[in-house]
């Protein structure tokens, strides 16, 4: 066979090429919101963008990209697109790599921190908790750890949201089948009770959590928001401009203990926004810590 004309299976038939405008839309969203979508998620982004284009009657991706920056309605359109992207992203035990990192790296480091004072409490804040799935997930993780690593610790989850209506639903703790998300049937049996065709979080899990209404931008942090070890703040900062992001991060820095961690939603970045926190890499995920708070043990 002569060189250069030999053909071979060129892999599975390649899907339709992505429109280069989609990459520009991705970059524009990242610049505006700090939320990055890797290449392998761009088909999904394309679907969401198409929905928005239909809604506002825009015909081409180029025109839609222009709607996302420069126009007076741009911030509102970005917010609507983000809602499309994040639609249905609630659920128990989402972002399992974050929870693994919490259990395997963060909690052991926090527990071993020599600067930790008595009484031995460990506090996690779910900021912008919405209907409570993340907050209950964190409470369950802490309960799973309480027999072992956190045996001598009193653990507490603080869950806040600006919207009283979603907080009411969170407090009730009643959900459609929670194992439809990443929750295993074993944990569902352990931490939920059946309630007609739905499931309710058990009282011991609820007892771990303090729900309260709190607007991250308007309200001043209360005493109960001090002395926090870890903050989970997912899908909140992406809706805010740089100034508001910085204000909230400044609040967080006052709430967190010196060794404290911040976890954001998937693909969320604080690059170029602030310098109070350092990026750290954990197995298959990232988090933010204060500079110089990196403990030597276990590194």
């Amino acid at each position: 066979m002569s060189a250069g004309v030999m053909t071979a299976a060129a892999g599975p038939e390649r899907a339709r090429a992505l429109d280069p405008q989609l990459f520009r839309i991705r970059d524009s969203i990242y610049q505006t919101t700090g939320m990055f979508q890797p290449d392998h998620t761009l088909r999904l982004l394309e679907e969401r963008v198409m929905r928005r284009m239909q809604a506002i009657q825009v015909r081409t991706l180029r025109e839609y990209r222009e709607q996302l920056s420069g126009s007076p309605t741009a911030p509102a359109e970005v917010a609507k697109l983000l809602q499309e992207i994040r639609d249905g992203s609630q659920g128990f035990f989402r972002h399992p790599e974050q929870l693994q990192a919490l259990r395997k790296i963060v909690l052991p480091r926090l527990v071993l921190d020599p600067s930790r004072k008595e009484p031995r409490t460990l506090r996690i804040w779910s900021a912008g908790c919405s209907t409570g799935e993340d907050a209950y997930t964190l409470a369950m993780v802490l309960m799973e750890e309480s027999a072992d690593r956190l045996k001598e610790f009193r653990c507490e989850v603080l869950a806040t949201d600006a919207d009283e209506a979603v907080l009411e639903r969170a407090r009730a703790g009643i959900y459609d089948d929670p194992s439809a998300s990443q929750l295993t049937p074993h944990l569902r049996e352990k931490y939920f009770t059946p309630l007609e065709d739905r499931w309710q979080v058990t009282s011991p899990v609820k007892a771990q959590i303090k729900f309260s209404q709190f607007h991250l931008l308007r309200d001043s942090p209360t005493e109960q928001m001090k002395g926090i070890d870890v903050i989970f703040c997912k899908d909140v900062l992406i809706y805010l401009d740089g100034l508001d992001k910085r204000r909230i991060l400044h609040h967080f820095s006052r709430s967190l203990l010196p060794h404290g961690y911040i976890f954001l939603g998937s693909g969320e970045s604080l690059h170029g926004i602030q310098e109070e926190f350092h990026l750290v890499h954990l197995p298959s995920t990232i988090a933010y810590v204060r500079p110089n708070s990196t403990l030597e043990a276990g590194n």
Partner: peptide
């Protein structure tokens, strides 16, 4: 497999 540690790239 995964390495269980925390890395600050700047350091």
């Amino acid at each position: 497999y995964s390495e269980e540690r925390q890395v600050d790239m700047v350091e």
